[in-house]
Each structure stands twice: as structure tokens, then as C-alpha cells.
């Protein structure tokens, strides 16, 4: 995927969305938070050139995004960019750890399900994937809270840090990790199920291939055969899929953040939604899409490292 044109198209798309909303764009952007003073409206009109022809408005909108100007939030008394950047870290931590978790566990479980295909392990793994595939993640999160936070008391029910602070440095990060466990697992389960199925199918397909027969005939030990030869080839579809997951994880984190009170972009989007602050909402959408584009570039890079036949485009 060529990154820059995609970002450009997304920005164009957002511009149309802004004009699709009923009403005067200035009042749509200002929201209904009671913050829309006449001065603020005038400022919005000037900043986005709303009194000028549509084409000029569009060019100005693109220019604003290119110069990372996403407007100013009246509610928070802060620029939208710094609001978004302030929350981006928490979301990337949540989405990133859940992607690593789902890729790692999915690869492992898929491998086991393929190698022990006629045993009870494989049946159990398939049962778990089928259930994880069908569960709404927000509900899973709530049920995990009931079991692991309320009943067992193993992990906190919500938030990212203990109120009052758990200390600085390592103590702080341990505290964050403790809060991260449940939301990260919740967000990872759906894709873990997907990777398990993909990996299982991929390993089974590779085991039938000629190179495996050849290696076996040459006396390569079974364990080495799987780890050195099959795994490397079978993992390719997973890497491709992981690129798709980035968008899914960023979107899914909205629900998971709402369930676990995780102070990330999703929560911000939610607050913006209820304040009807469309400008902030579109800023979040644009920057999240940029993250997806960057992640896809990264996936292409990883792909070309694992599989030298793939040329970087």
C-alpha cells in the first residue's frame, strides 16, 4: 500500500463527512457543548474559511491537516492535536500489547491444533476459538471483570493506574501492567481465534508440500522440521493479517476502553461524540488511520524480512 495517497484520500473523505452533517459546518464543528460563543464560531469560520467557495474550503482543510492543525477544543481548553497525542500512548499500549498477545498465542495454539489434530488438545482449542469468535468483546470484558476483578480480586476493575499513584519508575509501570492485563486479553481474543484458525490451516497445508517431504526424506528431525521450516512459511498469512488487525484493534479499543475505563483515544472519541465535537472526532479518525497506514508499512517490512521473495514496493 502506498501510504501518502491513502492518507490524502482519507482527509478528503473526512471533509465530505463534515459537509454531509446537517446544518452549518461551523456549528457542526463547534458542537453542542454550550461552548459555541459567537467569537469561537467566527474563529472557526476564519480558520476553515467557511465563508469561501467549497474548493477553497477543501484546500484549507487539507492544508490544516498537513500542518497538523486539527483545531482547538473549547471544552478542554487545549488544541485537539495535543489532546489526541496525550491519549494516543494509552491506546497504542493497549492495542499493541493485544496484537502481540493475539499473534503469539494464535500462532502457538494454531500450531498445536495442527500438530495434534486428532487429540483432545486440538478439539479444545477449536472450541475456544469458536466461542471467542462469537462473543461480543465488550461483554467478554464485563464478564472478565465480574470473575477476575470482583469475585477473585486478582486485577483492578478499571483505569490505567491506581488512584493516588503507586509510585514512580518501575512501580508505576508494574501498576500500569497490572491494569493492562484484563483489557489487553479482552481485546486480543477475537483475533487470537482468527490467527489460530489461520495458523492451523496454514501449517496443515505446508505439511503436505513437497519441501516438507524432501526434508523428511533427508532425515530432518520432526521438531526441527516444524520449527525451522514449516513455522517460517506458515506464519506468513498471520503477518499479513496482523496488518489488518491494527485497524480492528484501534476500533475495538473504543469499546474495551469504555468497559475498562482505559484513558485512551477511544474514551476521548466517546467524550467528543457526546459533546458533538465533530472536529475532534475527525481528528481522532484521521490520526488513527495514519497509524494504520504506518503499521501496514511496518508489516510489509516484516514480511520482506521473513520471506525474501517479497520485494518491498
Amino acid at each position: 500500500m502506498q501510504g501518502l495517497p491513502t492518507v490524502f484520500l482519507i482527509v478528503t473523505f473526512n471533509f465530505f463527512l463534515l459537509h454531509l452533517a446537517p446544518g452549518d459546518p461551523a456549528s457542526v464543528m463547534a458542537g453542542e457543548a454550550g461552548a459555541a460563543t459567537p467569537e469561537y464560531m467566527a474563529q472557526l469560520r476564519a480558520q476553515f474559511g467557511l465563508d469561501q467557495p467549497l474548493l477553497m474550503q477543501y484546500l484549507r482543510y487539507v492544508w490544516n491537516v498537513l500542518t497538523l492543525d486539527f483545531g482547538y477544543s473549547f471544552r478542554y481548553q487545549e488544541s485537539n492535536l495535543s489532546l489526541i497525542m496525550g491519549r494516543m500512548g494509552a491506546t497504542l499500549l493497549l492495542a499493541g500489547s493485544s496484537i502481540l498477545l493475539s499473534v503469539g498465542l494464535g500462532t502457538l495454539l494454531g500450531l498445536i491444533a495442527a500438530m495434534r489434530r486428532d487429540r483432545i488438545e486440538a478439539a479444545l482449542i477449536l472450541l475456544v476459538t469458536v466461542l471467542a469468535y462469537a462473543s461480543p468483546i465488550f461483554w467478554l470484558g464485563l464478564m472478565f471483570i465480574v470473575i477476575f476483578a470482583i469475585q477473585l480480586g486478582w486485577v483492578p476493575t478499571s483505569g490505567m493506574t491506581t488512584a493516588g499513584g503507586a509510585g514512580a519508575g518501575a512501580a508505576h509501570w508494574l501498576d500500569v501492567a497490572h491494569h493492562l492485563i484484563l483489557p489487553a486479553i479482552t481485546l486480543s481474543l477475537f483475533y487470537m481465534a482468527l490467527y489460530t484458525r489461520l495458523m492451523r490451516a496454514s501449517v496443515l497445508e505446508n505439511l503436505r508440500m513437497n519441501y516438507v517431504t524432501t526434508a523428511r526424506a533427508k532425515g530432518v528431525a520432526p521438531r526441527r522440521l516444524v520449527l525451522r521450516h514449516v513455522l517460517r512459511n506458515a506464519v506468513l498469512p498471520i503477518v499479513t493479517m496482523a496488518g489488518v488487525q491494527v485497524g480492528g484493534a484501534l476500533g475495538g479499543s473504543v469499546v474495551v476502553e469504555a468497559v475498562f475505563g482505559w484513558p485512551g483515544l477511544g474514551q476521548l472519541a466517546f467524550e467528543a461524540l457526546f459533546a458533538r465535537d465533530l472536529n475532534l472526532l475527525l481528528g481522532i479518525l484521521t490520526l488513527s488511520s495514519v497509524v494504520v497506514v504506518l503499521a501496514n508499512l511496518l508489516v510489509d517490512l516484516v514480511h520482506s524480512i521473513i520471506d525474501p521473495r517479497v520485494a518491498l514496493s
Binding site: T6, G247, G251, G266, L278, L285, S288, S289
Partner: peptide, 11 residues
């Protein structure tokens, strides 16, 4: 497929 779908739906 690039725009995170759940965020997009919310908007």
C-alpha cells in the same frame, strides 16, 4: 479498510 471501522461507525 484502512479507516478503523468501529471509530468510523461512531463518527
Amino acid at each position: 479498510q484502512t479507516i478503523p471501522s468501529f471509530l468510523f461507525a461512531i463518527v
